[in-house]
Write a protein that binds this DNA or RNA. Sequence first.
DNA 1: CTGTATGCAAACATTTTGCATAAGC
DNA 2: GCTTATGCAAAATGTTTGCATACAG
Lengths: 147, 147
Amino acid sequence: MMGIVMHHTETTMTNTELSSGPRRTRQRAAVGAIMATLNEFHTAQEVHAALRDQDNSIGLATVYRTLNQMADADELDCIRTPDGQSAYRLCSHGHHHHLVCRRCGRTVEITPPDFEQWTRQVAAENGFIDLDHELELFGLCAECAAA
Amino acid sequence: MMGIVMHHTETTMTNTELSSGPRRTRQRAAVGAIMATLNEFHTAQEVHAALRDQDNSIGLATVYRTLNQMADADELDCIRTPDGQSAYRLCSHGHHHHLVCRRCGRTVEITPPDFEQWTRQVAAENGFIDLDHELELFGLCAECAAA
DNA sequence: CTGTATGCAAACATTTTGCATAAGC
DNA sequence: GCTTATGCAAAATGTTTGCATACAG
């Protein structure tokens, strides 16, 4: 973690970080493809099961790794479901937020007025940088409320 | 779970559910007391550790059970932290939100303008009831940014 | 005394990680 | 041919549960 000195004379990775992202593998393509077809949030387990069901099974760990990476790369949005699982969805066009039914999981996209701008202002006022935020509303949708 | 018929002639619990809530035990009092002193969200593990530190140690499972029960009884608010733990806080009268440094944990209380009112409006527009929400901002505070 | 609450340890579920192997570039 | 990605199984994590015991009412 500290003070490790590398003594080998030359690395193979010559050019300055032209490494150009992750390698294109069947598994990564499969995850990307299936995420493209899903419009709601889904857990890693669900994605894994869905791939298995379409005879394109890949390792569960790989699903977790890939989803994490895609989320880190801002390709996916990630939220925590009320029961504590991570759920992912294709990240379209800048952050957005959701109104989620805590029973059936139905989600509605919402856009708070002036929200992003307000977060920047608050952060600036308090000397914070490198801002991120999390905003979700939870409730019972009409159907679940009726049932 | 179903169809279990009790054959003993009389139960001890005579009157119609005058059971009057949970029993008052040292452990439950300890959890209640410590939650009363905390103004931020804290996980079960943190509560357990805090009690141990003040030589009032109780079982971890009991902490989980008690917090769950208090949350079910609407005595505590519960959120999920970004890393997937449940965090509890005394259920106060009008929610507030925070700007949290993701390095040192320093928190600043923030009050989005018209936020609660806006959430009610959005929920109503979408037929959602029994609303709850979660809003936190994360960033690097000035000190941590300098370091 | 009766039944609920506790503590402990084991069970559980979800997610992460170590390591040998396969595969991309 | 380097090096990254994968799969598997094991570890780690956070939480819940079964059961014998302690204790509140």
